[in-house]
Write a protein that binds this DNA or RNA. Structure first.
Lengths: 195, 195
DNA sequence: ACCTTCATGTAAGTCGTTACATGATTAG
DNA sequence: CTAATCATGTAACGACTTACATGAAGGT
């Protein structure tokens, strides 16, 4: 239900499914991912419900673009969603679940896992910083940002800070893990092959 | 597919669906939520695939408990999942999507939204701190933590730090928003009723 | 000739949510 | 007697993923 709202938000400018896909792989990717198939289907649903309208226009390359724009009802739905207050979705972080069960692996595999996690987050942070730099580059430093710009930067900042916070956490985790491995170095029960 | 793995991880101690539900609403809730219906269905699937076995035992109260324990194959599947390295699930944070579109609302509604978001995260942090305090209380400060304890604390720390990081972000966001609202106080285009 | 980018989707299947159904035991 | 807790699930629906299908335009 909330991908519908996200698309309605993005449709502040008329866009094709393909256009929207680009947003999802760039400025956005740190807090919402969506596959083309899902985007196209959701756009169809929006149209069915009268929240968006389509217009087919020829494209320079390939098949004609189906450009969606939101209707009055669409805008109303979006605003209702926003006015309802924060919709706190349950985040599923399988990496953390994996950390919780890491006792199932031997110590060196544990260390490898934590290091791999660190590298993952570092890579993601780097990607996001590149996006942020690009946004910054397009901006006019003399003027106060527009509303859209202001909030786009806020969400970028959120992502950057989240990743930095993860990296800090894993750094400390790796250190604690090393220290604790040293104190507890008799072979442990749970790393053995029982079951 | 990964709820299967999470349950396999939790089944390091034989448990009923009801037991597992308790974990999901307590020590766990900050990075994975699951409804009973889904837990029961997943347990059934694990059994079908030979990753867990059931034994029915009478309970003191209510219907008999169906206690699941993981099989050798189950443990192997879990370890394979862990050895495969971090599984970075795409997080969907609809709150951030909402922030991105906040320009659709008037300024005072924007401020209310950000404040509500702050309160949400503060409440969640408080809950998690309570869980962490409880865990700390049960622990023996003299001994080094067991492997299980060590990783459980790691995941709790991650949650606490994440929430704190969110709170810092929103605090700053609210300040920036106030400052920026003051500079840009002519009525803005996007807050008007066009579309 | 072949690859990439642009651009559309469908079809099958899994995962997850919401709502409901059932029934025993114990504390007030 | 009533409500809470313990304990099981099903049924229906909606969300999301994975894999596949199609095809034109333009570059190498």
């Amino acid at each position: 239900m909330s991908l519908d709202c996200v698309l309605l938000g993005l449709l502040s400018r008329p866009s094709s499914g393909y256009d929207l896909k680009q947003w999802f792989s760039r400025a956005f990717h740190h807090f919402w991912a969506a596959e083309p198939s899902q985007i196209y289907r959701t756009l169809g649903r929006l149209e069915d419900h009268g929240l968006a309208s389509v217009e087919e226009t020829p494209s320079l390359k390939g098949p004609p673009r189906r450009v969606y724009r939101r209707t009055k009802a669409g805008r109303a739905a979006l605003r209702a969603w926003l006015r309802d207050g924060p919709s706190m979705s349950d985040t599923r972080q399988s990496q953390l679940a994996q950390v919780l069960f890491l006792a199932e692996l031997p110590k060196d595999a544990q260390r490898r896992f934590l290091r791999a996690l660190l590298r993952e987050y570092e890579a993601r942070l780097e990607d996001l910083l590149a996006v942020a730099a690009e946004v910054e580059h397009h901006a006019d430093p003399a003027r106060a940002p527009s509303e859209d710009e202001f909030f786009r930067r806020l969400t970028l900042d959120a992502g950057i800070q989240q990743y930095q916070s993860w990296i800090d956490w894993i750094d400390r985790a790796i250190q604690h893990h090393a220290a604790w491995s040293a104190t507890e170095d008799e072979p442990t029960r749970s790393a053995q092959g029982r079951d």
